[in-house]
């Protein structure tokens, strides 16, 4: 007989016979199988990360434009940033990402204690990063390098008086350093905001991991958060050379 719209058996039953999949209690019923759910979740997180790429992209373009228009001002301003601190932060964040990747592995092989440990290490290093950033921001505050009414360009007009071996800038060029610092605060600040949100989510994940939510095959939240955390890491990987390492050669040219 002509089939109209043919129908299937209960999808769960068949899928369980033919797949060796894990039957998890978190399986949402608008999905046919947990694999579909996991892949959809991962795909959804990647789409969200695409929006983040485009969001930061606007700031990166502004940076590209003004660095090229006001190169000297950007160089002088960039040399105010501390390379050791920036490099340390880069290493800290990379390590934090390493531990996050290990956390995903621990969830996949169902080692609960290791999972919690790696999540804790990820979080601690995240806080270390923010601590160093706070210290750097504070230093900028004290030197009056925060853009706005209190911005002070005297260090750039007459660097020798402050013991700096920089090329002095004319006053109007020195004003352009404000653009550099604005981009510095906007980009690292936006990055830090994402980290703070990430740390909040990490606390929640740690609590759930401790309860055993991720030790029986349900790894999607850890996996998808890992994607977010690594993305934040990648943004910093680009911010570090762009903001800190514009022109660190000795003052020879």
């Amino acid at each position: 007989m002509d089939s109209a719209i043919a129908t299937t058996q209960a999808e769960h039953g068949i899928a369980e016979q033919q797949h060796e999949h894990v039957s998890v209690p978190q399986h949402r019923h608008h999905f046919a199988t947990p694999e579909q759910q996991r892949e959809a979740g991962s795909f959804g997180m990647w789409l969200f990360l695409l929006t983040e790429i485009m969001f930061f992209g606007g700031l990166f373009f502004a940076y590209l434009l003004f660095r090229n228009w006001y190169y000297d001002a950007f160089v002088t301003a960039s040399n105010q940033l501390s390379v050791p601190l920036g490099a340390a932060n880069t290493a800290i964040l990379i390590t934090s990402g390493f531990f996050m990747a290990l956390a995903v592995w621990a969830a996949e092989v169902r080692k609960q204690t290791l999972l919690v440990l790696f999540l804790i290490l990820t979080t601690l290093l995240g806080f270390a990063f923010l601590g160093i950033k706070a210290d750097e921001y504070h230093e900028k505050y004290e030197k009056h390098h925060i853009p706005g009414a209190s911005f002070d360009t005297s260090q750039f007009i007459n660097p020798a008086a402050y013991g700096l071996s920089e090329k002095p800038l004319a006053p109007d060029a020195a004003q352009k350093t404000q653009l550099f610092f604005f981009l510095y605060f906007a980009m690292t600040g936006m990055h830090a905001l994402h980290m703070v949100l990430g740390l909040g989510i990490l606390f929640w994940l740690m609590i759930r991991a401790q309860r055993g939510d991720f030790s029986s095959g349900y790894v999607a939240p850890i996996e998808n958060f890992g994607l977010y955390w690594h993305f934040v890491d990648i943004v910093w990987i680009f911010l570090f050379p762009l903001l800190y390492l514009i022109n660190r050669h000795p003052l020879a040219h």
């Binding site: 983040e52 930061f56 853009p147 706005g148 653009l179 604005f182 906007a186």
Partner: peptide, 23 residues
């Protein structure tokens, strides 16, 4: 892919008004 770019444009307008960043 498109909406986040207007988001950052608006954020910059807000910051320009609040702080006077100069972009």
């Amino acid at each position: 892919l498109g909406t986040p770019v207007v988001a950052i444009a608006l954020v910059l307008v807000i910051l320009e008004r609040l702080v006077g960043i100069g972009v």
